[in-house]
Amino acid sequence: MKTQYIIYPAMVAMLSTACGKSNVNEQGIEAQNEMSTELNGDDTTMVKRDGTLLSGTLDEADSTRLPAPVINAIENDEVLSKSRIISTSSKIENSITVYEVEFELSDQSNKTVEFLENGNVRQ
């Protein structure tokens, strides 16, 4: 009878330590490290848990937020206001941010327009 008081707690202790919690914590830490790395602006791929890549999973239309002057310029343009934005991007040239916006026009053709920070179309 006394051996049951020793064996049962020992079995419970062995079972609780053998659950593999350390492996789960290591995987969680590894996943956090992957998520906290700096993103590349041109990278639109995501990695599934098994390591395979899913390309194009990020919507490129949301890749760059357009400032209010650029949005106003688009809304005030007769052709562009009726078009669908396919993608946006930004770049800095000579300390000026230039926003490149690709549109799908009503005739199904694409048109890329570059806007300056103030909403003016870049020539």
Score class of each variant (00 low, 15 high):
12 V>A: 15
105 L>Y: 05
86 I>E: 00
43 D>F: 07
86 I>S: 03
6 I>L: 15
66 L>P: 01
14 M>H: 12
72 N>M: 10
44 T>L: 03
103 F>D: 00
71 I>S: 03
111 K>I: 01
57 T>I: 05
69 P>C: 08
23 N>R: 15
24 V>N: 11
20 G>S: 12
54 L>K: 06
94 N>D: 10
99 Y>G: 00
78 E>M: 08
102 E>C: 04
73 A>R: 01
13 A>Y: 11
31 A>H: 13
89 S>R: 05
107 D>P: 01
10 A>L: 15
113 V>S: 00
11 M>Q: 13
56 G>R: 02
41 G>N: 10
56 G>Q: 02
52 T>K: 07
106 S>E: 11
90 S>L: 08
97 T>E: 09
45 T>Y: 06
85 I>C: 06
26 E>M: 09
90 S>A: 14
64 T>R: 01
42 D>P: 00
8 Y>C: 08
39 L>Y: 13
90 S>W: 04
44 T>M: 04
57 T>C: 06
40 N>R: 12
70 V>Y: 03
50 D>N: 13
76 N>P: 01
102 E>T: 10
10 A>E: 15
38 E>I: 10
72 N>Y: 09
77 D>T: 07
115 F>E: 02
111 K>A: 05
82 K>M: 09
105 L>Q: 07
47 V>F: 00
14 M>L: 15
15 L>P: 00
39 L>S: 14
73 A>N: 02
94 N>T: 02
23 N>L: 15
103 F>T: 00
12 V>R: 14
106 S>H: 08
53 L>T: 05
99 Y>M: 01
48 K>A: 07
86 I>D: 02
29 I>G: 06
9 P>F: 09
121 V>P: 04
68 A>H: 13
27 Q>N: 10
119 G>W: 02
81 S>A: 12
94 N>W: 04
11 M>R: 13
2 K>D: 10
12 V>S: 13
5 Y>H: 13
51 G>D: 01
57 T>H: 02
105 L>K: 08
106 S>G: 06
115 F>Y: 15
55 S>M: 05
49 R>D: 04
108 Q>G: 01
79 V>F: 08
54 L>G: 04
37 T>E: 13
120 N>D: 14
102 E>S: 05
53 L>N: 02
32 Q>R: 09
24 V>L: 14
34 E>N: 14
4 Q>E: 12
27 Q>D: 09
21 K>S: 15
20 G>M: 10
54 L>C: 05
75 E>G: 06
5 Y>K: 14
109 S>P: 00
70 V>K: 01
112 T>A: 08
2 K>Q: 12
87 S>C: 10
122 R>Q: 14
5 Y>L: 14
84 R>E: 06
35 M>S: 10
54 L>H: 04
104 E>T: 04
108 Q>E: 06
106 S>Y: 09
14 M>F: 14
30 E>Y: 14
37 T>N: 12
37 T>W: 05
102 E>P: 02
29 I>P: 02
21 K>A: 15
28 G>K: 12
96 I>H: 10
77 D>I: 02
18 A>P: 06
42 D>N: 10
94 N>I: 03
89 S>I: 01
